[in-house]
């Protein structure tokens, strides 16, 4: 289960809506081993694409150096899908490289008001296996 503050979810959704129709991406980092997402770090989508995202490689290195020096790790790795549900694609699964992170997906596609597919979902992706988990917003 992912436990995350409401304001952090709002920041993720705001980023996703702002970057639409491109995919938005970023992380919420926290103390290593805490499983507690605290610090919102939006990243630039270097691919600037509606169907792909990639952290810029220099920004990625800066992020990891900064997290290392602060004793942090990526607790949440988020990105948006712009025309499809908030569910990991084959690409998402093949690129997933943080077995301890919560992969949060949001969708900015137009949804029917009564649509029952959630706008925000969270997954673990380990060794190519996806397991959805509950999101508890506090």
């Amino acid at each position: 289960m992912l436990v995350i503050r409401r304001d952090l979810i709002e920041l993720i959704l705001e980023h996703a809506r702002k970057d639409h129709p491109d995919e938005a991406c970023g992380v919420v980092v926290g103390p290593a081993g805490s499983d507690c997402p605290l610090r919102f770090v939006p990243m630039e989508n270097a691919a600037r694409s509606a169907t792909f995202y990639e952290f810029d490689s220099a920004a990625l290195l800066r992020l990891y150096r900064e997290m290392d020096s602060r004793g942090e790790e990526p607790i949440v790795i988020y990105h948006s899908h712009t025309a499809t549900p908030a569910y990991p694609s084959r690409t998402d699964i093949s690129y997933a490289s943080e077995p301890n992170a919560h992969y949060v997906l949001v969708t900015t596609r137009e949804r029917e008001p009564e649509a029952d597919d959630a706008e925000v979902r969270s997954f673990r992706i380990r060794d190519g296996i996806v397991s959805e988990e509950q999101v508890r917003i506090v």
Partner: peptide, 28 residues
């Protein structure tokens, strides 16, 4: 190293090599 010579990038003693998996994905 993609902006250097990739796998042919020459190394010298004392160099630091950092490996990071790309953080990437997408809808398709």
């Amino acid at each position: 190293v993609r902006f250097l010579a990739s796998l042919a990038t020459p190394l010298t003693a004392g160099d630091v090599v950092t490996i990071l998996p790309a953080v990437a994905g997408g809808a398709v």
